[in-house]
Amino acid sequence: MESIPIEHGLILAGILFALGLIGVLTRRNIVFVLMSLEIMLNASGLAFIVAAARWGHAEGQVMFLMILTLAAAEVAVGLGLIIQMFRKYQTVDINVLSEMKG
């Protein structure tokens, strides 16, 4: 097996996280916002795997499994909310959900 500089893996995770953040901040379609959240969660999982490779331990992979479970539960609830929102407003624009602003 060849060696890989560990900071390159962390930089990849950072770039993916920043791209997901841009997606969350710019998109107005709520399905795209949820997809960008998935990208961000996946990037944090990648950081855990890189840390696991750094120390040669399995704990990082265990934490990745926890993130995977969290992402699955979050997506199920989020998509349920999207369906409910679409029934009520017939749109996926998140700007219609600004009723609670002060």
């Binding site: 097996m1 060849e2 900071e7 962390l10 490779a53």
Partner: peptide, 16 residues
């Protein structure tokens, strides 16, 4: 990146 740049470590990848 500025924080990560301070870390520099080549690892021999071991399969877990």
């Amino acid at each position: 990146l500025s924080v990560i740049g301070q870390v520099s470590h080549d690892v021999e990848i071991t399969r877990v």
